[in-house]
Design a protein around this nucleic acid. Structure first.
Length: 273
DNA sequence: GGATATGATTTTGG
DNA sequence: CCAAAATCATATCC
């Protein structure tokens, strides 16, 4: 019964959603830049495809089961001319048939569950759907990072502020700083120092009212600031291309290959009587 | 197409 | 639990 529960939870089994699948795409349209709506509807489209196949197959099995039961009953009726057959016996036979078919249906359910799982991991695993942050967001984050090189650990509030300004989540800010710290450290002496051009930006506008709380790690700055900031006062051209269209999103990347075919060949072989 | 950049997740250490 | 490090998987550049 676990399979049933899962299928219902995923919206495959259970009551059919009336006609339109757009009913669920209104919840999270407010906060972020609305890029999750597209993939979500795409996801739902694929899910509904699975659901359709599932119901189709289920019905087919049901039908086959009924047909087969009728067939067996006819056989038994013929046999009853030569030997007595009790109703008990007939009932037992029917039960056996139903059990067989329900186990076949169980296979279908399991395959469907697998397909749903694959679909989920394909579409919902954010790692596979990575999108670069906008130019502006990177600017903001880098600005903060290089302005606080001695302590690049924004507090929770600062993370929230950064997240708001960048249009990303706090978690993404944390990820970004985690990646940035480790990758900066790996490159000390390389062009990273060069990227101190963000320090120049700081002069233009103190956009970050950074609270001066530096708790641990204050004295032992692990980022050694190796003294070659260099005279690279080249002002950033600030080419705000702004062309961050995320409308590509061809859905057919994984679409057909979800290996959901081939599970409806579970031919209702006759139960060995 | 491969090399590199980059966001996200997993593993590991305190 | 948080952060570093390693790793994964995709985007983007050339």
């Amino acid at each position: 019964m676990r399979l049933d529960n899962m299928l219902i939870a995923e919206g495959v089994a259970g009551p059919e959603k009336g006609g339109g699948a757009g009913a669920a795409a209104n919840a999270s349209a407010a906060a972020n830049a609305g890029d999750s709506a597209i993939e979500h509807s795409d996801y739902r489209a694929k899910l509904s495809q699975i659901r359709q196949i599932y119901h189709q197959e289920l019905e087919k099995y049901e039908q086959a089961c009924n047909e087969f039961t009728t067939h067996v009953m006819n056989l038994l009726r013929e046999q009853s001319r030569t030997r007595p057959i009790t109703p008990k016996e007939i009932e037992r036979m029917v039960q056996i048939i139903h059990k067989k078919f329900s186990s076949i249906q169980m296979q279908l359910k399991q395959s469907t569950c697998e397909a749903v799982m694959i679909l989920r991991s394909r579409f919902l695993d954010a790692r596979r759907r990575r999108r670069n942050f906008s130019k502006q967001a990177s600017e903001i984050l880098n600005e903060y990072f290089y302005s606080n090189l001695s302590n690049p650990y924004p507090s929770e509030e600062e993370k929230e502020a950064l997240a708001r300004r960048c249009g990303i989540t706090v978690n993404q800010v944390s990820n970004w700083f985690g990646n940035k710290r480790i990758r900066y450290k790996k490159n000390i002496g390389k062009a990273q120092e060069e990227a101190n051009l963000y320090a120049a930006k700081k002069a233009a506008g103190p956009v970050l009212p950074v609270s001066p709380h530096t708790t641990y790690l204050q004295g032992t700055s692990p980022y050694s600031m190796s003294g070659t900031p260099g005279p690279m006062m080249s002002p950033p051209p600030a080419e705000d291309s702004m062309g961050y269209g995320m409308s590509g999103m061809n859905g057919s990347g994984y679409a057909g290959a979800m290996s959901y075919e081939g599970l409806h060949q579970v031919s209702p072989e006759s139960p060995d009587l």
